[in-house]
Design a binder for these strands. Structure first.
Lengths: 220, 220
DNA sequence: ACCTGAACACCGTTCAAGT
DNA sequence: ACCTGAACACCGTTCAAGT
């Protein structure tokens, strides 16, 4: 008589995320997750092929919470992009330890695909042409990924910025002055300031039709 | 009679980098590096406190090759930023497996500090004010980091893009159309297109003095 | 002082065995 | 069918010992 499955993928993912939130990404192991669930290590392999797939489940648990409902058309396109980017950043930012996992597993995540689809729709709506859309989407994704990592690593009690503040001002005049100022700028302000830079650039590209490849890549 | 040191830090770093270039970052281990050098594993601990410090040496070996000579003033400031960003991307791009290491060890790298100092000088030269400089520098660093990772992961025989091309066009119309086009856009074009977006945004910020925090953060 | 090898506490995963 | 525990081939690092 077949015993019923005692575990769902969701429970597995939650247990793994709990381990990560408690002990960091370095603390994630098949053994740790099994202990978290009160099962033997090998029992996990009933539900998952290998560690890689467990990681995929964690990524999907976190990214699956990103609201991918398109913002209303009454919001200007730049505002809509800001909303979508903000949602992604908030979800990942709530579990910054998983950032390295999202990088490796991003292409397989339905949530990221849905998110990308909505952002592309907004960009197309705004009037960006084919080649520009690709560049803009990768630019946005690249910015979010990079910024979240800088933020996460740079703010572990900000060892970087503190160390930089202590640099010899004669050899690094700009850097030490900037580090002083950087401490007064919050992470949110930094993030939205950089995003603003990107969006301004996009709007300008839109205005003068730049960003097309030199050979005049066709639009479809 | 004290034996002479048989190893320099540079040799150690080269051996580790050789392991990484051959077997990937996952193949890096104290044992692997020791074997590469023909020594016992524990001999490495004569030269390095722990694995973390070995990684730091690798990062410095790669980033130390970045030319941080400021480009001549005859080049417009945007061009100078492009040159500096390009140098960083080229060095890291030559050993993409180390990207995760640069993230963790970046704040301790003299090479990155020198690079940042030069870029900040260019930005100050261009007329960006204090708060804007911080945002612009982090924006640039974030973009490079994110873009290099997307490029590296996304181009391992491009499993992501290929998978995306195979998506059901009815559920992901924008994405599948975009994936088709993305295959015709080279990595360099993507990178410089995104960078161009950022630089346009910076130039615009410069023009109208935006990016200052709401409370009017003073310039020094 | 430099280098070694055994040992400890960890990994992911395979495999044979229990219910 | 579901779950277990021993075992294998790995880690980083400590420690005592050799030259």
């Amino acid at each position: 008589m077949p015993r019923p499955r005692s575990l769902t993928h969701a429970q597995l993912a939650s247990a793994a995320l709990a381990v990560i939130d408690r002990d960091g990404l370095a603390g994630l192991s098949m053994r740790a997750v099994a202990k978290e669930l009160g099962m033997s290590t090998m029992a996990l392999y009933r539900y998952v092929d290998d560690r890689d797939q467990l990681e995929q489940l964690v990524v999907e648990l976190v990214l699956g919470e990103v609201d991918t409902e398109p913002p209303g058309p009454e919001v200007p396109w730049r505002g809509r992009v800001e909303i979508m980017v903000g949602r992604l950043r908030d979800s990942v930012g709530a579990h910054p330890e998983i950032v390295p996992l999202t990088l490796t597993h991003r292409h397989r995540s339905p949530a990221v695909l849905r998110w990308s689809e909505v952002v592309l729709t907004i960009l197309a709506d705004a009037g960006l042409r084919g080649g520009q859309q690709v560049i803009a989407l990768r630019g946005l994704l690249g910015y979010v990924i990079g910024a979240v990592q800088l933020e996460h690593l740079g703010s572990l009690s900000a060892p970087g910025t503190v160390a930089i503040s202590a640099l010899p001002p004669d050899r690094f005049p700009q850097l030490s002055a900037t580090a002083q100022r950087a401490r007064r700028i919050g992470a949110d302000q930094e993030f939205s300031g950089g995003l603003d830079m990107l969006l301004r650039g996009m709007a300008e590209m839109l205005a003068d039709g730049a960003g097309l490849p030199p050979d005049g890549l066709p639009d479809r």
